Amino acid sequence: MTNSTTPTTSSSGRTEADRLQKGSRLSALVRHPEIGSFVVMVVVIIAIAIASNGNAFNPLGLKNNFSIIAQFGIIATGACLLMIAGDFDLSIGSMIGFAGMSMSMMLKWGLPFGLGPATPLTAFALTLVMTLAIGWLIGNIVVRSRLSSFIVTLAFLFFLRGLTEVCFRIINKSTQISGLPDFKETSWFANLFGGEVFGWFYDFWFMLGGNLNRAGNQWVYGFDARVLWWLIVVVVAYVVLSRTQAGNWIFATGDNAESARANGVPVDKVRISLFMFTAFCATLFAACQVFETNTADAAKGNLKELEAIAIAVVGGTLMTGGFGSVLGVVFGAITFGLVANAVFFIPSIDGSYYRVFVGVVLLTAVFLNENVRKRITGGL
């Protein structure tokens, strides 16, 4: 009779260990803020693909969809970082209208103070200086007055929208500017915002026998330039948030500002910088619109601030700050863009259902995000 010193594990023990390991993996997956928005995105993609008979994802459909998605994504990324830091910016939409007005008026009437005609570069640069200054002002008012960012930016929502309309009427005698020269044809800078990118994608699709019009020629030649700007904003925001000390400061500021300040985090500078970042995103949004369509309207950007916040929340960003994901915002922007554009591919759908969808998904996301927060904080 021999004695074995090798430890043995029962099959039931292995089963229990496997179950616990799978449970821990599932629990870790659920903790990711972007998991909910990813699931919703997949469901929406499948539903729209079926309902539109695939037309939503043909060459032109793909281009149009990503044009809307990129618009949402640019401003929602700015809103996401600001919300992670514990603040809101309700002036984003009005900032878009203000920036578009500023650029288009300079392109039509010339530089202020009679300094001569404006080029796309100078019009954009001067507009960006103004919008960043407004973002800096908003941030300073919020930080120094200790007022709620909701109230301060709500005030600037009305102020900037009113200022835009007044300037349009006084200088342009109308709240719209149309018929600007197609600066994309003569200016490399305008082409950066209003031209097309990733032409190789559609060229490759054509070589494979797709992307054909009825005459058998290539149908679509590239995505709108705003798609590239969206990707740049997303990559920069993701790197900053997840790979730099500034990202840690943003999370710490939103989690507990006083504790973060006590540990050496420049809380005030972080908050002001993020208000300036949302202003930059709004200016980028406006530049893409102006140089693509060669028009401007005082109503541009209306309600975009609410859509940006909604996308950030659906993407897993907590309303209370300290928690969020740029990747989740990407999923949320894709979802919102597809639903907003679905009316063009599914004629039987009333466009107002988009607002119904936003309301339902937003409320569901708030409950799910609160559940995630409780899991992470242990119910605090």
Rank of each mutant, 00 (worst) to 15 (best):
S4M: 05
S12A: 15
S12D: 13
T15P: 06
L20E: 12
K22N: 08
S24G: 03
S24Q: 14
S24W: 13
S27N: 13
A28F: 12
A28N: 13
A28C: 05
F38S: 01
V39H: 02
V43C: 13
V44H: 02
A49G: 14
N53C: 07
N55F: 13
N55I: 11
P59A: 14
L62D: 05
N64W: 03
A70G: 10
I74D: 02
I75T: 12
G78D: 10
L82V: 10
A85F: 05
D87V: 03
S94F: 07
M95K: 05
F98K: 00
F98L: 07
G100F: 12
M101P: 03
M101H: 07
M105E: 05
W109T: 08
G110C: 06
L111K: 01
L128I: 07
L132C: 08
I134R: 00
G139W: 10
G139A: 03
S148W: 14
S149V: 04
I151W: 11
T153Q: 05
F158W: 12
F159M: 14
E165G: 04
K173T: 09
T175E: 12
G179V: 13
F189H: 07
A190L: 03
A190S: 08
L192Y: 06
L192P: 00
G194F: 11
F204Y: 10
F204D: 06
F204E: 10
G210A: 15
L212I: 15
G216L: 10
N217T: 09
W219D: 10
R226Y: 03
L231A: 15
A237P: 04
V240Y: 07
L241E: 01
N256V: 11
A257Y: 07
G264P: 08
G264W: 14
L274Q: 03
F275N: 03
F275I: 10
M276D: 06
F280Q: 01
L284Q: 09
F285S: 00
F285K: 01
V290Q: 00
E292C: 00
T293C: 02
A298R: 02
K300A: 12
L306E: 04
E307Y: 14
A310Y: 08
A312S: 14
V314R: 05
F323P: 00
G324H: 04
F331C: 10
G332L: 07
I334G: 00
T335L: 12
F344Y: 15
S348V: 15
S348D: 13
I349F: 11
Y354V: 10
R355C: 08
V358F: 03
G359P: 03
G359L: 13
G359T: 09
V361Q: 02
T364N: 00
V366E: 04
G379C: 09
